[in-house]
Design a binder for these strands. Structure first.
Lengths: 352, 352
DNA sequence: AATCATTGCGTAAACGTTACCGTAAATTCT
DNA sequence: AGAATTTACGGTAACGTTTACGCAATGATT
């Protein structure tokens, strides 16, 4: 209903006494325009604050961008990747009407061969870009090189292999994430408390991933000079019963004032203390907005959940590629994701 | 480069042996189609999972949606509304290429007449919708009624007047926000601590706004049964020197273990304790990601900043209207904004 | 002086969808 | 039975941009 007649290419052409083709040439700064007309047109463009109509532009160039997504399959032990996929799917819904088509390839994060197989499959179709979550460092490096040879842009999510992907990284800053956990810890416990850092999970391929967090955590707390007694332990199991058994031994031995679970498996620790009121419950900090984790946050068993928005990572990656390819925007460096703190009082409003 | 030929209206028409006009009729379920062909076409649409090309659709309907934004002017005492405007501007940048045009009208939040004047100005141009931040409750109600008569949709941001706006509300849940502050407080102080709730600011028109937060805060803490001593005070000043004077009296009298500043003026309290090391610094909790607030968060003077993403509120409101008018999506109820917790360790990653 | 390449520009056909206009055939009304 | 109306559909011009193609004028090469 607004009376503003949209100022378009035709109007520019009329003002400059040239054809729309010439205007288009200077807009997309191509050849075949004399300097004098080019400058005349550019002046008109600036003066009238011309904004191209993206609908028309995108309709005209038959841009069907196609993107491959290569991430781990959701296992029953961790719903983490399901969240990530949720974000990807949201991106698919939103962008498929805009000429983007997205194919998702899943691999088993405990089996390298499935990654390689999925990687091969990617090359069977001609994609423009691939979003990949690097679990197997070396294999991913190979894959990225192969993409580069085939003119495929790459972008990482969730964890980074620095200077490897062609378009960058969307995900959390792991070291800072660890420091934040340390920060929250410092509010929860008194000086000289006993702190237990706990790695839970069968796999061990992403140790570097966890270690960065742990380093941030311990460095932060050591610098406080509050004489905490920090212990680091692994529980190499996924199943609750196995974890429970080891945990009961651990807790009996260490008697921690606080447990920092370094990944998204914090719910099993929560479950343990919820089912075993015979143990005095320590404070608990963990990661990720999984339903099971939120459950124990809501029950008051887990104090803080630190979240890195895996769903948003996926969505942002897609959105970034959309901007990069279709709107031809400058590669505006991808920032790290926000690191969110969830408590029993604000989790309800955490957006998906 | 993807080989998938986009499946469009023409393809449907070919399969159904009808013209594209007929297909269009059933797509936009209009009249003038027999039941039998309608069903045949619908079947084809479903089977081939047809997705309309949004570019073409939006190009075809000359939809220049125009939106008015009616929010308080940024004062030097509070940069809050500047953040909000930032989000709006981001929306303008992003959506202006898509046929949306947005005009911003500012009013003085300490002067009702400026609101009414701005409101009048809105009606001089024909807008489709207006985004309004309600400060003056009654006047806003009038304005909304007037919009309704003129066929203007309304949407609130930042604070709500329930059942008033036609499209809903984008903003924080104030009661929960107060509870969260209480929750964080409970981590910072010991039983029987002295807590000071502080309203800072000259104006008093948004008292209801603050009281909802305060109610959430006190209710939460009282329910804990930890015998806190909670005191509520106002400082009716904006200028630092005035606030400082009153604050020094207050602190001498009360000696709080924690100060909960109920709005975005927390930086002046931070500044006070930073400049006056002769006073023992209490814990401090406040609101909003303003540069000055973040400054004292970074200095370690403020413990927690609770943020409601004013910038995102503005952006979301615009995005909502875009979806509502242009993509004709169902009014998917607007959720409350996430309530974010910022500490010295994660503020760097807080997205704008 | 004839040929050829280059420069600078215009014309028109796409892109997929919407919506107006026209018109046979079918139905209803006199 | 003829006229009037309704039903069901087809044809086609927009929407603003991109781009393949064409063509005149100029300058360079024989």
């Amino acid at each position: 209903m607004s009376e503003k007649k949209k100022f378009g290419i035709k109007d520019i052409a009329k003002l400059a006494n040239v054809s729309i083709a010439t205007v288009d040439r200077v807009l997309n700064n191509r050849k075949d325009v004399s300097d004098v007309t080019r400058e005349k047109i550019q002046k008109i463009i600036k003066e009238n604050n011309y904004r191209p109509n993206m609908y028309a532009r995108s309709l005209s160039v038959k841009n069907n961008l196609s993107i491959a997504v290569l991430i781990p399959r959701t296992s029953q032990q961790t719903g983490y990747w399901e969240l990530c996929l949720t974000g990807i799917n949201k991106g698919i819904d939103e962008f498929s009407s805009f000429g983007i088509n997205i194919d998702v390839f899943l691999y088993d994060q405990e089996d390298v061969s499935t990654f390689n197989k999925a990687a091969d499959t990617v090359f069977e179709t001609k994609f423009n870009a691939v979003v990949v979550a690097p679990i197997f460092i070396e294999e991913t490096r190979c894959f990225v090189d192969r993409c580069k040879q085939n003119g495929l842009q790459t972008i990482f999510i969730n964890s980074d292999i620095p200077n490897s992907s062609s378009l960058g990284y969307v995900g959390p800053d792991l070291y800072s994430t660890g420091r934040l956990a340390g920060n929250l810890t410092s509010y929860l416990v008194q000086d000289e408390s006993k702190l237990l850092i706990l790695n839970v999970g069968k796999g061990l391929q992403n140790y570097k991933y966890l270690n960065t967090k742990i380093e941030g955590y311990t460095k932060y707390l050591e610098n406080l000079g509050r004489n905490f007694d920090i212990v680091l332990r692994d529980i190499h199991h996924n199943d609750y019963n196995d974890v429970s058994r080891e945990l009961s031994n651990l807790v009996e031995e260490i008697v921690p004032d606080l447990i920092f679970v370094t990944n998204s498996r914090v719910s099993v620790v929560g479950q343990f203390f919820h089912e075993r009121p015979d143990f005095v419950k320590p404070h608990i900090i963990g990661f990720d907005f999984l339903p099971s984790n939120v459950d124990y946050l809501a029950k008051g068993v887990v104090d803080f959940l630190i979240c890195q928005r895996p769903d948003k990572q996926g969505y942002l990656a897609i959105e970034y590629l959309y901007n990069y390819f279709l709107l031809k925007e400058k590669p505006a460096d991808i920032k790290s994701m926000p690191i969110d703190i969830l408590t029993i009082e604000n989790y309800l409003f955490y957006e998906n």
